Simulated scan of single mutants.
Amino acid sequence: MSPAWVRAEDPSAVGAVRRRAVELAEQAGFDATRIGQTAVAVSEAVSNLVKHAVEGVVLVRPHPEAPATVELVAVDKGPGMADVARALRDGYSTSGTLGIGMGAIARIASGYDVHSVPGTGTVLVMHFTADDTPGPPLRASGLTRPIGDEVSCGDGFAIARNGESTTVLLCDGLGHGHIAAVAAQTAVELFEQVLEQEPVSILEHLHRGLNRTRGGAVAVARVRPGAVTFAGLGNVSGWVADAEGRQGMVSLPGIAGHQGRTLRQFEYQVPSYATVVLHSDGLTDRWAPGSVPGLFARTPAVIAATLLREAGSRRDDACVVTVRPGDGGN
């Protein structure tokens, strides 16, 4: 089952999200002090959503790059903030989503990123680690959201890192609900069996293994400094995007597990300032990098959450994965 988004519509959301954050912190081995700090920061962030946001939603989960890290993603559609730096100062209050307590949240979190546009909304992503635990590399992120009020999401993703390269999977299971979710989860399990192979070989392995499921659209991308190798089958979108525009990547027609011509992989250049974006057809292709000023200077998690807000459909399962090429270091 996919981690659940919580609507920040009334004060009960604060307690629900705090309890989930505490549960994850305990599972990750945080000590009592760090668990308490995490609970305070999460409560403050969600409380501000309840008080000030328009259509605020929040997600708490193990971080996709580091499962022993607790991540919170908060998204709203307004009112936004004109001066994020000012909102980060202690004692500053605003009618925007993150006014009260934002300075304290920033100090407690092991890391955070914020993007806000007045009249459009705010995305806040923050993560918490045990005091002596290194944080995630912040090279990749992924988010799913089920159709309507469905519990199971038929879209899924996986992220694997090996040295300077990051390999990601996105699967859009055919249809919706539990059966589609089984296909997506099977794709993740198959992906984890063959991580060392080339993307086209991974895709071939998934194509064979998904024949016992409903199948779906699948893409595999290996991102490394300067380039991405991409192999897709079905209606999955792949892009190399930056603040100035985007370049599409080729996914071949078919249904993984059932229909597919000879599979291929393609190479594309990825400048150090660019982001590789994969998404299912639960996001429209009509998003444009320039439509949200400053977005592609943010972390992959904030980019993913903003694209889900701006381009995601409530009439379909949705998934978006974002990857930065890194610099060849750690």
Results as ranks from 00 to 15, higher is better:
69 T>M: 05
93 S>T: 12
137 P>R: 11
105 I>N: 14
122 T>L: 05
79 P>V: 07
81 M>G: 11
107 R>E: 15
126 M>I: 07
130 A>Y: 06
134 P>T: 02
96 G>A: 12
106 A>E: 15
71 E>P: 08
137 P>N: 10
109 A>F: 07
105 I>S: 14
89 R>Y: 11
124 L>W: 04
78 G>D: 13
72 L>C: 09
107 R>K: 14
84 V>N: 03
70 V>M: 07
134 P>M: 06
87 A>G: 11
103 G>T: 13
121 G>Y: 06
87 A>N: 06
99 G>I: 02
129 T>L: 05
82 A>R: 14
116 S>T: 02
94 T>C: 12
77 K>V: 07
69 T>A: 08
127 H>D: 15
97 T>K: 02
115 H>I: 02
120 T>W: 05
124 L>T: 06
102 M>S: 11
118 P>C: 00
89 R>I: 13
79 P>K: 08
95 S>G: 09
96 G>F: 03
137 P>M: 10
120 T>F: 05
99 G>P: 04
121 G>M: 08
85 A>L: 14
102 M>H: 04
75 V>H: 00
123 V>I: 03
106 A>R: 15
74 A>I: 03
78 G>K: 01
73 V>N: 01
117 V>A: 00
75 V>D: 01
81 M>P: 07
100 I>N: 14
95 S>F: 10
118 P>L: 01
116 S>R: 03
124 L>P: 06
126 M>Y: 04
88 L>N: 06
132 D>H: 09
102 M>W: 07
107 R>S: 15
89 R>M: 13
111 G>Q: 09
109 A>R: 09
117 V>S: 01
92 Y>R: 07
83 D>L: 15
75 V>I: 01
133 T>N: 10
120 T>A: 03
92 Y>E: 14
118 P>Q: 00
84 V>W: 04
128 F>Q: 09
127 H>M: 13
79 P>D: 04
109 A>C: 13
91 G>N: 05
68 A>V: 07
123 V>D: 01
101 G>Q: 06
124 L>M: 08
93 S>M: 11
112 Y>Q: 06
114 V>D: 00
111 G>P: 08
131 D>K: 09
131 D>C: 09
73 V>L: 04
69 T>R: 00
80 G>K: 02
95 S>R: 12
131 D>R: 09
119 G>K: 00
100 I>Q: 13
112 Y>C: 05
93 S>L: 13
127 H>W: 15
121 G>I: 06
130 A>D: 11
133 T>H: 12
138 L>S: 10
116 S>P: 03
113 D>V: 00
90 D>N: 12
87 A>H: 04
110 S>D: 01
131 D>L: 12
125 V>C: 04
110 S>Y: 02
69 T>E: 12
111 G>T: 11
124 L>G: 04
99 G>H: 02
109 A>K: 10
75 V>S: 00
116 S>H: 04
130 A>W: 09
112 Y>E: 07
